[in-house]
Design a binder for these strands. Structure first.
Lengths: 176, 176
DNA sequence: CGACACATGTAACACGTTACATGATTTG
DNA sequence: CAAATCATGTAACGTGTTACATGTGTCG
């Protein structure tokens, strides 16, 4: 549900054609979200169908410029102003651990430690990249790196909490 | 890509029929992920098509029990052992802020503060629920609450980082 | 009896993803 | 010229989501 908004975001700075939208989109996400070009064209058609963008077609067969409509701008604005609903976000790590807890055929402890190890590895890579940051990096790059680091730190924190909870749980079970 | 694995997770504890899978699935996710029952049946058919589950049909028209296959167990095990790839996860908050930074038609500062306010509100609700936790709560409930709290705290931390970065950025631009 | 939980399924749709086909323009 | 980039699009697929249709069992 975000490619649509992303494209609207790109177009809010002015009309553009499909291929340009693709590159702008990827720049805006610091390369964290790459697009198959074809996806842009499909999505543009859906946006046109919904009246969120319109096509400034000089003639068929030529380069088509797309422009955001008033409705599109309202939609984009609404998206920007609406807080994300975390309760609707499915975080794969959480899901995975929860299911491992319930599906007793697996060792939750080793799963948690496995995920933790991978997270630590990624964290180190990110910290290295962070140390290498210089004036060549855009604001987007920096914010994205911050986001990735903070998210992984949170992952590790949660995994550690899980370990503690699991041990406490087992201990309590053992005492009964 | 996770409903499949979730269903496999449920079935790893033993065969079950569709409706039962649905309730088990929702219990496993602490109610954070509710399913339309129909979805279970569609997904089961896909899993059967891929050889990950098989149907123990006594007779047509009766209650159908589903069982995980050896391949299914391997797939599930592989899922459990594979660390989640954060770089592939699209976090809506991050995307939103990044696009707001690029699409200059919006006040990033107010967006950040808006999101921060909403996050603080949710955090307070969660902390309240956390204080009310008692022995009636399952391990899953507790782990899920932990996850939600830690994630929102990370969100707030990142939003604050954004504020700082944005101010620094503007200041540097102003000095040039 | 009527409402509600249990139980199974189909149809349609939206979105994201990949692969494929096609051509113009630029540049080494 | 050949390769890379620019540029547009279609077709097919996987997954998640909702709405709808249908029927059984149970309990107040």
């Amino acid at each position: 549900m975000s490619i649509r908004h992303g494209i609207l975001g790109v177009l809010s700075s002015g009309p553009a054609h499909g291929y340009r939208i693709k590159t702008q989109f990827e720049e805006s996400t610091g390369g964290a979200w790459t697009l198959n070009v074809g996806q842009v064209y499909s999505t543009l058609n859906r946006l046109e169908r919904d009246g969120l963008v319109e096509c400034l077609a000089d003639d068929d067969d030529s380069i088509k410029e797309w422009k955001i409509t008033k409705t599109g701008q309202q939609t984009l604005s609404h998206w920007f102003h609406t807080p994300v609903d975390d309760s609707q976000q499915r975080d794969e790590l959480t899901i995975k651990v929860l299911f491992a807890v319930v599906a007793q055929s697996f060792d939750v402890h080793s799963l948690v430690q496995n995920q933790r190890g991978a997270a630590m590895g990624r964290l180190q890579q990110l910290m290295k990249r962070k140390r290498e940051i210089n004036r060549g990096n855009s604001l987007v790059d920096i914010l994205l790196l911050d986001a990735q680091v903070i998210k992984i730190e949170a992952e590790i924190k949660w995994l550690d909490t899980c370990e503690a909870r699991l041990q406490k749980w087992q201990k309590e079970r053992g005492e009964l």
